[in-house]
């Protein structure tokens, strides 16, 4: 299998000492959709920025399309496309002019550029808005224009940084459709970042879960979910009886694979949740533990995230959009 991206022990420490990426390694195979899934500040954009030659790594190595991002930046730039987290279409220009500028930056001959731009605008349902200034576009339209611009030079490797951030649910699904269609119609490798579980699950061939600059788990969505070893039962209890250990209350046996205590919630891994649940509740009650509530959870990326990081991505995503906007402004000021 050909490797389109090879990352080895990559570090990024920003001036000021923030360790945004802490020694990550991964490879992306040719033709796959690879997702970096992680909460706010996990280091996703930093990783993408290094791979797209926008910033230099502090340590480590990154090859994109076989080229070193530091030493052969120009070669890398020729074969990649980027849809950045902040939409950056030029508001003062029409959709069409945006695409024409983009085409010229990649030295696509005018006639070819026109043909491709027409096709892409059609593909993205933007044809009738081609001659409108981009400032009149909605968020979803801008995202699509951005996608069209990034596809214009037929990149071998396309980077999508949070391609659906700030879009409402219908538009998000539409963007997923476009991404899937791009993948079907072009011979392209896609690397995207997201903090939406469903997005990573639905779209990607493989997912890397990233938190605090480290990759916590990596695999196909199915592998990751299977790694949970089946279902999870969460039992909320009043309090554990004095002197009793978790192992004595719920012994690990054929049915129970792993037991953990988080606060007053016992988290049990089990192969078949439906069958194990009644036994566990009865056994706990008989040992004098008051069960307040139970929760049977089927494997999902959300659970995988919980398993590897000890928190829910949603918890750490309190009004993500707000934080994102504020930070974007701050970051720009800081530059």
């Amino acid at each position: 299998m050909m490797e389109d991206v090879v990352v080895e022990n990559l570090w990024k420490i920003y001036p000021g000492g923030i360790q945004a990426v802490k020694g990550i390694s991964f490879t992306v195979h040719h033709g796959e959709i690879f997702s970096l899934l992680g909460p706010n500040g996990a280091g996703k954009t930093t990783t993408i920025s290094i791979l797209t030659t926008l910033i230099k790594p502090t340590k480590g190595k990154a090859l994109v399309g076989g080229f070193d991002v530091e030493k052969e930046a120009k070669r890398v730039r020729e074969i990649i496309g980027l849809v950045p987290q902040d939409i950056v279409v030029d508001d003062d220009l029409t959709g069409w002019d945006n695409l024409m500028v983009q085409a010229a930056l990649y030295h696509i001959p005018k006639s070819v550029a026109r043909k491709r731009a027409e096709d892409l605008l059609e593909f993205m349902d933007l044809k009738e808005f081609a001659n409108k200034k981009a400032e009149n576009y909605s968020g979803g339209m801008r995202r699509r224009l951005e996608l069209a611009a990034a596809l214009l030079h037929r990149p071998k490797i396309l980077f999508l940084d949070e391609p659906t951030l700030g879009l409402d649910v219908q538009v998000r699904t539409a963007v997923w459709d476009y991404i899937n269609r791009i993948r079907k119609e072009e011979d392209m490798t896609l690397i995207m970042t997201t903090h939406y579980m469903e997005e990573a699950d639905k779209l990607s061939d493989r997912v890397a879960i990233i938190d605090y600059g480290e990759i916590k788990a990596l695999g196909s969505p199915k592998e990751l979910k299977d790694s949970l070893g089946g279902d999870i039962i969460e039992v909320e209890v009043e309090a554990l009886p004095e002197g009793s250990s978790l192992e004595s209350l719920i012994p690990v046996n054929g049915m129970v694979k792993e037991v953990k205590l988080r606060g007053n919630v016992i988290r049990i891994k089990t192969a078949e949740g439906e069958k194990a649940l009644p036994n566990i509740v009865i056994s706990l009650s008989s040992k004098g533990v008051t069960v307040k509530s139970v929760n049977l959870i089927k494997p999902s990326l959300d659970e995988v995230f919980m398993e590897f990081t000890g928190k829910r991505i949603r918890e750490s995503e309190v009004s993500k959009e707000e934080v994102f906007k504020e930070r974007a402004i701050m970051r720009r000021r800081a530059r």
């Binding site: 926008l54 950056v88 530059r335």
Partner: peptide, 15 residues
């Protein structure tokens, strides 16, 4: 261009 991120778009292109 820098504040709006357009500069990055130019910088990722091979110009």
């Amino acid at each position: 261009d820098r504040r709006l991120g357009y500069l990055n778009k130019l910088l990722v292109s091979p110009i």
